[in-house]
Amino acid sequence: MIEFLKVTKEYDNGTLALDEVDVKIENGEFVFLVGSSGAGKTTMTKLLMREENVTSGAIYLYGEDITKISQKEIPYLRRKMGVVFQDFRLLDDRTVFENVEFAMRIVGATRREIRRRVPVVLNMVGLNYKAKMRPSELSGGEQQRVALARALVNNPSLLIADEPTGNLNPKVAMEIMDIFENINKMGTTIIMATHAKEIVDAMKKRVIEIEDGKIVRDEVGGGYHVKPVEV
C-alpha cells in the first residue's frame, strides 16, 4: 500500500508543487494522475522514486516511510518499482535485449537468470522477434514496449509511468495501454501521470485530479475532465 500523509513539496525557487496532499493507493490498483501542466502530477511520481524529497509530511510505501530513507538506500527503493518515461530513455548503443538485460544486471542477476527472464518479458510486450535490434531501428511504440519490458523485468510490485503515451499516436497508445492493463491484472500496482484524455476516459480506472498542488478529485471509474464540466 502507498500512502501520502499531508505531503507538501516546495521547490527551492518557491514553487509550491504539492500542498498537504493525503492519498492512499491499495496494492494492485490502477491509478491515473491527471491535471494541467505544473499541477503536481510529476512531483508525486518524483517523490515516490525519491528523486525529490518532501518539504513536510510522510510517504509510506509498503509500510516504510520513504521520506526518511538515506541516500544510499534510494537505489534499493527504486528496485521495488518499475519506471516508464515519455521519452523512453533507452540506451541507443545497445540492443533491445541488452537494454532489458541492463536492469537485471543492476540487481546482480546471473547470466542464466537473464537468459531465462528477458525473452519472457520481451514476449509479454510482443517484441521477442526484435531482441537484436537497436532502439533507433524501432518505432516509438516499440521503443516504449522495450522501456516497459525493462521496467517489468525485475518483477516490481509498483509501476510508475510518467506520460508513457505522450510521444505516441492514439492507436499505438492504446496498444501500450493494453499491455499496462494486462500487467495490472497480474497484480502490479500502476500509477500513471497522463494528459491522454481519450485513454483515461476509455479505461474507467481510478482518477486522481490535481490542481495547484491539491487533490481536487479522487474518483474510481472516472473520466479525464481536468477543467470542471459545467452544464
Binding site: 544510499k72 537505489p75 534499493y76 525485475n154
Partner: peptide
C-alpha cells in the same frame, strides 16, 4: 550522462 541517469532510475547503486 544519459546512461548514468537511466541507471540511477532503475536502481543502480553509485558503486555499480
Amino acid at each position: 550522462r544519459k546512461e548514468i541517469n537511466i541507471m540511477k532510475y532503475i536502481g543502480a547503486t553509485d558503486r555499480f
